[in-house]
Nucleic acid binder design. Structure first.
Lengths: 347, 347
DNA sequence: CTGAAAGCGCTTACAG
DNA sequence: CTGAAAGCGCTTACAG
């Protein structure tokens, strides 16, 4: 049905090599030849088949993003950054989804990723919010493919991430500084990486303030969708906090999407506690939700930038971009009684 | 570096045809040969290159989703449905972004889509929330490729969409039934398809109730990001409504994401009007936001299902799935004074 | 500036 | 059950 390089060559009275050169903008084709080829190509509606080019060039012009199937708002904003950065490049984006829980050790996750590498369809891979231990990460070296990590750190691959521990620390500390002394945390799946890190930062802030950390300050919702990063999960955890007899007076919340549910719970229980979330999703501003800002859009851009650089220069040194997340203070930081304690405005 | 079918053939003492047969699960390969080939392949870490297979088979195993770069929460939920449906198939998803405004006539948009078709990288294409007139849609027939449409209707391609006019009508009518008689609408970009359709439904409900429609019932925010489908845009439009001297007592809002901004505006102006949104995003439930439900996840699944069916059976009849969207009534339907007018619970 | 030829890494009739 | 050979649609030294 559709024409090939041979059809063009024949009708234009040139060799297929010349047709190929025209479409590759090879400067040493005479103008008259070029025009002739282009005229024939246009009349036949010819365009080079990307598949055939890939095989002959031994590169695909594709970048694959490997993301957990549980992807959420975080991924959406990262994706936007990737797309904008990709727009000016010669690469197209392919997205491959992985069934994964947040666990760091999982053979099935490793195998799914491996299958994607084995297809050999891409010039480079961006792995987002998927966690392995060192052995896991090392395993992928054998494919000898450019890899960049988002929301994860491993010494031997380019990466961009946020210091979650520090973010959680900042959030918790801001509440402590305001004078709150009984602070609970809304968690998601207990053994997921975000929760492990954020609860570490939470604890660090308590420790530093001489406040006793105890497991019973950590609250979990029952909803396990997306490792617990759902509005419902936050609603459940917050309900438990409000019904607890521990008399909490402030809350640090593992993610903004959960905080949305938590806010609803407070409304339903008619009891408002100061709360600080994590992520700073675009809607958080309109909820008056204080949050720890993750520069998701930027992370997407930077990861693509790094990956493309590595595709072109495989030998350059690995780099890691680690953001110190910023605390964005909004009205949710304050108690409903209007008693606004002094706030430490973080940078 | 990595091995090819020739390496395996040589070491296993068979022809490349046999190696190929083994990896294509061709039943007429003897067990002993198969085991030998598999053993060698495994020891060399061999896997067939997808690119080479594509060229030889003349199919790519790829489906391309063409989406506006302004993609949003709507797309995210559609994507989830597509991914789940794809998970059980032999296809991988590629996502290509198009710079587009919501306009129905745009040569630049047509050209961008054309470029994607010209690469010939995919076995089928899903076009999401991109609008053309009939000439525009006809144009793509020349590629002779399976196409499925989401959030759009054209007679000659499989499609899945929602009756927006009806949805807007239902939303508006529910407010009228409650007794509200001065209803404003929060719009997004004026000449975008969603706004055209939803304002039509809005008007239809007013007309039917004998209420006079006038352009000055339509409010627009200044933010033009994502054709105005942003929290900020909704905030701006709602602010204008609240400051208007038209004394509105209820609001229909073009999208939930804008409604989020509109709710914030009401809070800032300390003035609460009943409001009904459109989309029913996952967070809307937790905002108590009444909305018109679009089955986005389902739409994604169905579109993939239709496309795959067409890839395998190009000759079957075109089908269109058009959802009648459902009104979900939540607390935002009611005035702050607690005066709850009788509600017509739609099906 | 242009062409003939080999090669990219597979699949698939065809023949046996 | 297996192999030799042609073909998928390009690119790219090499030679002129």
């Amino acid at each position: 049905m559709s024409s090939t390089i041979y059809d063009i060559a024949r009708q234009a009275g040139v060799s297929i090599a010349t047709v190929s050169r025209v479409f590759n903008n090879n400067p040493k084709v005479s103008d008259v030849t070029r025009d002739k080829v282009l005229a024939v190509a246009s009349s036949l509606g010819y365009h080079p088949r990307a598949m055939a080019q890939s095989l002959a060039r031994r590169k695909t012009g594709l970048i694959t993003a490997i993301v957990p199937i549980i992807s959420n708002y975080f991924f959406m904003e990262v994706l936007a950054g990737m797309q904008d950065q990709l727009a000016d490049s010669e690469f197209y984006l392919q997205i491959s989804n992985i069934k994964t829980t947040g666990e760091v050790r999982s053979d099935s996750v490793r195998k799914e990723v491996e299958t994607i590498f084995n297809r050999g369809m891409s010039d480079g891979y961006i792995i987002i919010s998927i966690h392995f231990d060192d052995t896991g990460w090392d395993y992928f070296k054998k494919f000898e493919r450019p890899i960049a990590l988002i929301d994860e750190y491993y010494s031997d691959y380019d990466s961009v991430s946020v210091n979650s521990v520090e973010g959680a620390y900042k959030a918790t500390k801001s509440l402590i500084t305001q004078g709150y002394d009984r602070i609970a945390m809304v968690c998601a799946m207990a053994d997921s990486k975000p929760v492990i890190e954020r609860s570490t930062g939470f604890r660090k802030a308590l420790d530093e303030a001489g406040m006793t950390f105890h497991e019973n300050l950590l609250f979990y919702g029952q909803d396990t969708e997306r490792d617990g990063h759902t509005e419902l999960n936050g609603y459940q955890a917050m309900s438990a906090i409000l019904q607890s007899d521990q008399n909490f007076n402030a809350v640090f919340c593992n993610s903004d999407i959960q905080a949305l549910g938590a806010l609803k719970a407070m409304q339903d229980f008619n009891k408002k506690l100061p709360i600080v979330g994590f992520d700073d999703l675009s809607f958080s501003e309109f909820l008056g939700l204080s949050s720890i800002r993750q520069p998701m859009y930027q992370m997407g851009k930077i990861a693509i930038e790094k990956l493309i650089r590595r595709i072109h220069h495989p030998e350059i040194d690995v780099t890691h971009t680690i953001f110190s997340p910023e605390l964005i203070v909004r009205s949710s930081s304050f108690a409903s009684d209007g008693k606004q304690m002094p706030i430490e405005k973080s940078a």
